[in-house]
Design a protein around this nucleic acid. Sequence first.
DNA 1: GCATCCAATTGACCGAAATCAACTGCTGCC
DNA 2: GGCAGCAGTTGATTTCGGTCAATTGGATGC
Lengths: 254, 254
Amino acid sequence: MDSGAVILDLNQLRRSCASCSLHELCLPAGIYGDDLKQLDTAIRDKRALERGSSLYRDGDAFKALYVVRSGSLKTFVQNEAGDLQILAFHLPGEILGFDALASNRHVSQAEALEHSGICELPYDRLMQVSNDVPALHRQLMRVISREMVAEHRHLVMMGRQPAQERLAIFLQNLADRYSRLNRSDTSLTLSMSRHDIANYLGLAVETVSRLFTRMQETGVLEVNRKSVRILRPDLLAELCNTQHPAHLKRHDHD
Amino acid sequence: MDSGAVILDLNQLRRSCASCSLHELCLPAGIYGDDLKQLDTAIRDKRALERGSSLYRDGDAFKALYVVRSGSLKTFVQNEAGDLQILAFHLPGEILGFDALASNRHVSQAEALEHSGICELPYDRLMQVSNDVPALHRQLMRVISREMVAEHRHLVMMGRQPAQERLAIFLQNLADRYSRLNRSDTSLTLSMSRHDIANYLGLAVETVSRLFTRMQETGVLEVNRKSVRILRPDLLAELCNTQHPAHLKRHDHD
DNA sequence: GCATCCAATTGACCGAAATCAACTGCTGCC
DNA sequence: GGCAGCAGTTGATTTCGGTCAATTGGATGC
């Protein structure tokens, strides 16, 4: 209400990249000194996003890339027939919006899974800065490439893995990313619904629910609604790689 | 054998971007005049690739991006457990190798499906040129983004679509790309095996075979080994979008 | 505090596609 | 020319995960 609150909010949001705790995980990785200061000028802060509200939608004009500063989001596409596919869940430090580079329109939607803070990187500013800072361009490409590689993993999972492995891989991947954020990698708080998990994994909600139960019964997890504790990381790792049918494996290559 | 043959071969391969028939579909799209000449200096020609031989493999150091000039390739990943997933089939004008930008190593393999010609774009030269030609950077990002969007479509297919739709979508997509190359979009010559198609679609070979038979029986296709004629494009389009279960559709978004 | 609503779980049943198996027919090689 | 070997097809059977249905239980609101 009063201007004090506004200033406080701005202080919280307006922080330079150099002092941001996500520094090493975010776009600035590998960019230093004056270059980093210049990058700072390209970053516009963005108000917080409430759970369920959208950062961008399918068809929106491309204006900026976005970095998750806090909270989490999901991105998804919908085809003409209306089927919805979740592409990814995004944790702090991760960059969204690359889908729009091709056509200057977003072809997916990004929605907050919880109260989240976002840094906005207006694309034209970013391009201006990267004229002076060649490293920025390379870093941007690296980040996109990283995202492509992650998508490849998703694709392998969807094409080849049975249900239990999918969930195991999903949980392990989340745990890995949590630990990179210096959070516990054995005690996860899932910000997405079972429905979202199921959709992301290409499974039915019921299957995901049953798998959670089964993994709890076998002592791998302790599940309590959104909170998942990994009791046996070793067993979870095993579940990620059980043997499956031969025809899916490498054929004659090599 | 004689030097005449060598010169002919070089003539065929060493052609500037400006005169290349793939011009408008390839990296040079949107780059003109002197900029295009400069881009030309970054392009090293590459010998032809025989069917079954690899352009790069998992673990290879990243040196260059590659453009398919003629023929076709498949790219695939293999996880630790050995399951292989084909990521894409690449037709003339398409660019490969972006997966290596993230880590400076390829994390996938590219293999020729038939005798193919390749343009090599050494990455350091490309970066040098793009310092002078800002449009090149943007174009590169656009191309990567386009690839990401294509991967999203693949992901929707894998996660949500039943078998017949997958094959229909695959064929229609191929037909579209053929027509952009000014080839017939009703008469396809599949350079990949049934095995490859099945793997790409996340299905068993037998399922793919049965689907081809069924689509022939219903008069949609005329199939003869590698050659597929689309008799009823309208029916094929319908098959791409039949109705499926409600839980996969959009939930409350909007 | 209680009613409503929706997320999540659990159970029973079903079906699409995988697996297993047999066979056909190219293709290439001696 | 004939045979080996593999790609592809076809059929029978199984199975994993989806669908349908009922129930639980945590939140939210009055």
